[in-house]
């Protein structure tokens, strides 16, 4: 049973990890908790559902199309909120509020469109379960883990082997210094929102397949935030570890302590981390951002 619980935990955790990485990317460069990430999760789930249902294309194709959509939506959000606020020289609190507003707005619109219903995909995708010994592993969980690994590999290639990735990492240290290198900071930030949006989109779509598609699915963004805090804000590896850890923690607490108290214990754990290790489990002492 313990091994089955660990499998359950990792499958949840891998999704948190992917969400946390996307969340962390924007935090790194701007120092802002971007809650419009939650909107992208929900849009990813709904776009792929709508495409699969109404265009009658295979689910993987729908998911790919939806990822492109959420990437663009995220870039659009950057353009109409953050860009304007930045040019006006307004502080990060304004963006925080704007991003939260976008999140709530999108959720409200989706509640309206879907009449709040939970819906599932018309055709089965990665349905069923395979067994290893007496471990039951749903295909969707295995698929999610695999897809997270692929996404993280692609992301780390982009971040460490490309000119864009170099610019993102440079700007994450100092936007001013990056500009002095001739980096187009507007384009870079927009690119980061695009990448972050695609990660939210793929996660949202997969969560929709795994559970169901419903307007409040964007609330998973809070798990991304928690994972980032646990792993160390601004640390991509930490975000991945934080995601896996929270997934496991939730599952094991539910299984062995009490499932009704599991959210409370997760928050308590978060508070402990914040008090004892504010830089997160994987983070070094926070460097002052110049």
């Amino acid at each position: 049973m313990l091994f089955q619980q660990i499998v359950n935990g990792i499958s949840v955790g891998s999704m948190y990890a992917l969400l946390a990485v996307g969340f962390s990317l924007v935090y790194n460069i701007l120092g802002i908790a971007n809650f419009s990430h939650g909107a992208m999760i929900a849009l990813g789930a709904f776009f792929s559902y709508w495409i699969a249902r109404y265009l009658a294309v295979p689910v993987p194709v729908a998911i790919l199309a939806s990822i492109a959509f959420t990437g663009l939506s995220s870039a659009l959000v950057e353009l109409v909120t953050l860009r304007i606020l930045r040019k006006r020289g307004q502080g990060s609190l304004y963006f925080f509020i704007a991003s939260l507003t976008v999140f709530n707005l999108v959720t409200a619109v989706l509640v309206y469109i879907s009449r709040g219903n939970i819906v599932s995909y018309p055709r089965a995708f990665l349905s069923g379960t395979f067994t290893i010994g007496n471990l039951y592993i749903p295909w969707i969980d295995a698929g999610m883990l695999l897809i997270s690994i692929v996404c993280l590999a692609v992301l780390s290639y982009v971040m460490f082997k490309t000119r864009f990735g170099l610019a993102v990492r440079a700007a994450s240290f100092s936007i001013k210094a990056a500009q002095l290198m001739g980096m187009d900071i507007d384009a870079i930030i927009q690119g980061v929102f695009f990448v972050s949006g695609t990660l939210a989109g793929v996660t949202g779509a997969l969560l929709g397949v795994k559970y169901a598609v419903y307007p409040y699915i964007g609330n998973f963004v809070y798990m991304a935030l928690f994972a980032c805090v646990v792993g160390g804000l601004g640390n991509l590896t930490g975000a991945v570890l934080g995601g896996l850890l929270i997934g496991l923690l939730e599952t094991l607490v539910s299984a062995y302590i009490s499932s009704a108290i599991s959210p409370a214990l997760t928050f308590a754990f978060l508070v402990v981390i914040l008090l004892l290790r504010p830089q997160g489990l994987a983070g070094r002492a926070t460097e002052e951002k110049i």
Partner: peptide, 20 residues
């Protein structure tokens, strides 16, 4: 007799326990 928190969408941990 297992209580789950409101708003949960993942019940695998609880169900695994029930399965046992």
């Amino acid at each position: 007799y297992i209580e789950v928190p409101a708003g949960a969408v993942d019940f695998k941990a609880q169900l695994t326990k029930i399965k046992a």
